[in-house]
């Protein structure tokens, strides 16, 4: 499979169809892989793909990371299904143009939840919960796909697969609050959850605004809660569930639990799953005349 991807990447670079191929390479130790930017055809053999390739690469297509300043006019990117959902969502939000991107889709068997849990194979003990019930293991939107691309039914509603979300929702409100208070106590507001998110697109994040300062930048309870709740709200109907915010958290706070719960709410209210259609606008930035109104009191 990876040979076909490498050959296509080589061809794209040799023909001058793309300026760069964003993919995965071996990392600095055996458990890790790393994002890599391939500009020369002779470097394509660095590209790899396996369940350790957990990074969501569309992050680098977000304007916030200024790829356009590097002079890249057309970018090829290796995408597993969940990452392609992020690309599709970026296009739907006018953050990216479809013809600027060449998507090298890869068939995915699931991803390991943490690199340190990798033991040479993927199994129930180390598979990320986001992969359970995934309907884009054969990706939906691609320019190249190694082998045949079978038709997949993607009409099923989104499922929340992390048992922790269900556990939390069953807790009494004060206990649920106590859970977050304990976990947020570790937060020092490095904003890794923001920087790693493919969908955090604001030129100036609300938490960096100073006149006025909407969110206290210090990592006390008020500053931490207002940051995380705002972040969760800004991603409602947009989050494509890559789980990178939780993986990137250096203090192992599972911030994507908010996003998972919000996804359920959007699904229930609007039957909407982000990242599947290039045209659909997410429900909170559009309206239809037959939208529900019964919650307006």
């Amino acid at each position: 499979m990876i040979e076909q991807i490498r050959n296509q990447a080589r061809k794209l670079l040799e023909d001058g169809d793309v300026d760069v191929v964003i993919g995965y390479a071996e990392g600095s130790d055996p458990a890790r892989t790393t994002p890599v930017f391939i500009r020369k055809a002779e470097d394509v053999d660095k590209l790899i793909y396996d369940p350790r390739c957990i990074n969501s690469l569309p992050l680098y297509l977000n304007k916030r990371h200024e790829y356009t300043r590097k002079g890249w006019k057309k970018t090829a990117i290796i995408g597993k299904g969940c990452d392609i959902r992020a690309i599709v969502q970026l296009i739907a939000e006018n953050q990216l143009k479809r013809d600027e991107i060449y998507i090298l889709g890869v068939p995915c068997e699931g991803q390991v939840s943490h690199p340190e849990k990798w033991d040479g194979s993927l199994h129930d003990g180390n598979r990320a919960s986001k992969c359970i019930g995934c309907d884009v293991m054969t990706p939906h939107e691609t320019d190249f796909f190694p082998g045949d691309k079978p038709d997949v039914d993607r009409s099923n509603p989104y499922e929340v697969t992390s048992p922790k979300v269900a556990n939390l929702m069953e807790l009494e409100l004060d206990k649920r609050f106590a859970f977050w208070r304990t976990d947020f106590d570790r937060c020092f507001k490095c904003y890794a959850c923001r920087e790693v998110c493919p969908h955090c697109s604001c030129n100036v994040c609300i938490t960096d605004e100073t006149t006025p300062s909407w969110i206290d930048p210090a990592a006390h309870k008020k500053g931490v809660f207002s940051w995380h709740l705002t972040r969760a709200m800004h991603l409602v109907g947009r989050c494509t569930g890559c789980g990178e915010c939780t993986r990137a958290c250096p203090m192992d706070i599972q911030v994507d639990l908010f996003n998972q719960r919000m996804k359920e709410v959007v699904q229930e209210s609007y039957s909407y799953k982000p990242g599947y259609s290039l045209e659909d606008k997410h429900p909170l930035i559009t309206y239809q005349v037959d939208d529900r109104e019964d919650f307006i009191k």
């Binding site: 939840s113 943490h114 340190e116 849990k117 129930d124 003990g125 180390n126 598979r127 990320a128 919960s129 986001k130 992390s162 048992p163 922790k164 556990n167 939390l168 859970f179 304990t182 976990d183 570790r186 789980g243 939780t246 203090m251 192992d252 599972q254």
Partner: peptide
Amino acid sequence: LQPRLDDEGTDSIDVLT
């Protein structure tokens, strides 16, 4: 070790602080 909820699935790891 930070206290955990039961049955948190494979996404959770031990948090030592």
